[in-house]
Simulated assay, not measured.
Amino acid sequence: MKVLILEDEEIIARHLEGLVKQYPQPAEVLSVIPSVQDALHWLGIHPSPDLILMDIHLEDDLVFALFDSIDLTVPVIFTTAYDEYVIQAFKVNSIDYLLKPIQYEALAAALDKYYTLERHFTRTSPADMASLLAQLKVKEYKDRFMVTLGNKIQSIPTNDIAYFFLEEKMTFLVTDKGARLPINYSLDLLSQVLDPHDFFRVNRQYYIAHRAIRAAHHYSTGKLKLELQPLPKEMVFVSGDRLTPFKEWLGK
């Protein structure tokens, strides 16, 4: 298996290379590339690898710019610190989406999936291939949430939700009218079912709808305070590691 790594942090890239070499199947890391432009150049002059391990935030751009520039059909395992792009990732050639720090067990499971798919695609008919591809399709975004309060069950349309937040290990949704209701979803799970164009996870506690943001204020160096409607019980900030993707999302 010939593997290409797209990663702009050298320490993480070497860590990934070491994990790949631990895998029982023979693997060769062809190159470690830190930017979209370097990846375009490399792919333009070399035979395609069998698999790409791909970070999302590279030196010069989001890695999705690579797919916009060339017809890339190589299977991809995303390795990233951001959970906001999971839906977008599975619209391309992704077979798995791993969150940093990457552990060997998680990467090994993703490589197992790659080998399973490879065996099927090399020996099955076109109809079987189509069936396998259908299994990899992105599921639709969730358009309503069920809420249980005592004996009462409510169905809340996603379009009526201003934001989600975590409090004392419980997740709550807040509607546009200010209703505060508990749900059986973690924020990590919400990242898999919410439309990333409409919702963004600004920190460890809040997942916010675009329309709920009235303004963003510079609070201190590298920090934004959000003005939300309806008003939350506490001040809400965009965490430093999410500041750049948040600004990109806000301007879409």
Rank of each mutant, 00 (worst) to 15 (best):
F246K: 03
L173P: 00
E84M: 11
G251N: 14
D128K: 10
V147S: 04
D241R: 14
P126A: 04
L250D: 12
D50M: 07
T80W: 03
D128C: 02
M170I: 13
L58Y: 05
L243C: 09
T79L: 05
D188N: 13
T221N: 11
Y163E: 01
F172M: 06
E118A: 12
D68M: 08
Q192H: 12
E7H: 02
N93F: 00
A212H: 00
I156A: 06
L243V: 11
L187S: 03
V147G: 06
S35H: 05
Y219H: 12
G178C: 12
L190Q: 05
Q205V: 02
I70L: 15
N93A: 01
L181N: 00
E84D: 14
F64S: 03
I52K: 00
I153A: 15
I95T: 01
F121V: 07
H15F: 11
L66E: 08
Y114H: 10
I208D: 10
R211A: 05
K223S: 11
G222T: 07
L4M: 08
A216C: 10
G178N: 05
T79S: 13
V74I: 15
E17W: 00
A27K: 08
Y141H: 08
F172E: 04
G44T: 10
I70K: 12
M235F: 10
T73K: 14
L187V: 01
Q37W: 05
P26K: 10
P157C: 12
E28Q: 12
V29P: 10
R211L: 06
K100E: 12
P75G: 11
V238K: 07
D55G: 09
D71E: 12
A179P: 00
M146S: 13
D71T: 12
D38Y: 03
L181D: 00
Q88M: 01
Y185W: 14
L117D: 12
A108C: 04
L43W: 07
Y207N: 11
L194H: 02
E167Q: 13
F121N: 03
S35C: 04
P157S: 09
V76R: 02
Q154P: 03
V3S: 00
F172P: 02
E248W: 11
G240D: 13
Q37E: 15
L190H: 01
H57I: 06
L19Q: 07
I153T: 15
V236L: 06
F165C: 07
D112G: 06
A179G: 09
P232Y: 02
L136F: 11
L117W: 09
T80V: 04
V3Y: 09
R204E: 10
L19T: 00
S48F: 07
K223W: 02
I5G: 09
F64W: 03
A127Q: 15
R214F: 05
H15D: 05
E234D: 07
H210K: 14
A110N: 06
E118Y: 10
D160N: 09
V238W: 02
